[in-house]
Design a protein around this nucleic acid. Structure first.
Lengths: 255, 255
DNA sequence: CGGAGCGTTGAGCAACGTCAAAAGACGTGG
DNA sequence: CCACGTCTTTTGACGTTGCTCAACGCTCCG
């Protein structure tokens, strides 16, 4: 977990201007810690707050009505606004769950609504955050629809590296990814057993290893090639230059 | 094609208040007709206008760098703002193509930006449109990741019926869907050959037929059951009641 | 020490892709 | 009007991918 209680401008939050960021942070109602595997909200229920992820991983799941065939449709990293979209929408079409121990900054919808009503530039900036989110959704739909098992895994590992590096959670050749192989299957549209075989293939190809919740990348070029990885969907060019204080020495790929 | 040049408040546009709708329509720069299969914009290029679809179908495609493995990641129906998200983002991560002959209303980004800067409520309303869009993306990711071929097709057919009915393009048991089986495969993550077999299965199960660009539904309950269809992701409850003038006598399922 | 969750591997099977062929639909030019 | 080429739909045969079921070892934790 992160030290201290300050909210740092990292990850997706770097898309906001420093002034917008400070203004937003000032409106945080409180911080909240949630243990791994706990659901924060459920599809369909009324929601009154939005959550900014400060540390850990959160997931968004869709299931059928019997709670079978549960799938990850999004995975949030620190700096992501997990359910900002619940503010205009009021309720959600998916569940929100802590995938690891997480720390959250809680924002009341009333306060956020006041903010966007009085500060149109801020509204556009926050809107933009949800639009990058949508681009990531499209990427997930494409990945699952157009790629094979090993390719999907490679692509997913590349995506998570870029996004975690952007928020200072990745070093030069490894990063923490506290997910089980069943989680990876939920995210990649395959069974845990087949995830296991896919990861073995990637390992034997000399690309990367996953062990004890940590991804180690041995051959990034080959991994990106196998996963047909092109990070355009992350709109990294829109992020101001400058070292992320939490990520010394790790450059973000800019295609 | 639609008669006349008026822009009617139908489909997703019904989420806007009548006042917001009228204000928006007044800002339309011009109308534009585009023939089937023509690309309107390409991934990565700078975009200066957003397009509101008035009639026909438009698709959003992602491909890999060799233009192979092209997939549909979204399909727009009349009343949808095809690329409203290009206004805050500036460029897109996907192509935009006319799937049929289409009529579009063109809005300049400069004008839209002025609008959202001076009218926060309008900004929130337009933001909301892109959020429903994102919910549909999640649904597509879920469908392709959690369902089998026949189920995906059934689910897709149900989705299109609801969305086309909402904009008055569906009658009681059939609607026009000018897509080839290859298109359906692009949208559902399978080959055209397998689409053909899946449609045959649905036909032989007495659910629906697709012929000459028209879907006819013979047993909606069974179709929805096979496709595990639950239209929550469309947020239909947020749409004001009242007969759509273009859709007399066709009720929208409200779960 | 025992149980639960996770990772790993094997064997067999179902779903889906690939390749190929043929027939129908449709527009174009003669 | 017909002949032609092209695109689409349809079907068969066969190969591959990924799922299912099962078993076993490992680690963690009560």
């Amino acid at each position: 977990m992160q030290d201290g209680n300050t909210i740092e401008q990292t990850g997706m939050l770097r898309r906001l201007s420093p002034a917008h960021f400070r203004k937003l942070v000032g409106l945080c109602d409180h911080l909240r810690d949630i243990p791994a595997r706990v659901a924060v909200s459920t599809a369909g229920e009324e929601i009154g707050v939005s959550l900014l992820l400060l540390d850990g991983l959160m997931g968004r799941h869709i299931s059928d009505r019997d709670n079978r065939r549960r799938r990850l449709v999004a995975l949030e990293v620190p700096g992501d606004f997990v359910d900002l979209h619940s503010m205009p929408l009021g309720r959600l079409d998916h569940d929100v769950t802590a995938m690891s121990d997480v720390r959250l900054a809680v924002f009341k919808h009333d306060v956020l609504k006041d903010l966007v009503r009085t500060d149109p530039e801020m509204a556009i900036a926050l809107w933009g955050l949800t639009l990058v989110d949508a681009a990531i959704h499209r990427h997930w739909a494409y990945r699952v629809s157009a790629m094979r098992a090993m390719e999907r895994l490679a692509n997913f590992i590349c995506e998570m590296e870029d996004r975690l590096a952007l928020c200072g959670r990745a070093d030069a050749e490894s990063y923490a990814l506290p997910l089980t192989q069943a989680d990876l299957g939920d995210a990649s549209g395959m069974t845990a057993v087949h995830v296991n075989r896919g990861l073995r293939d990637l390992r034997e190809a000399g690309c990367c290893t996953i062990s004890q919740g940590r991804v180690t990348i041995h051959n990034r070029e080959k991994l990106q090639q196998i996963g047909y990885y092109q990070p355009d969907f992350l709109y990294l060019h829109d992020i101001p230059e400058g070292e992320d204080p939490a990520a010394p020495g790790r450059a973000i790929a800019r295609t």
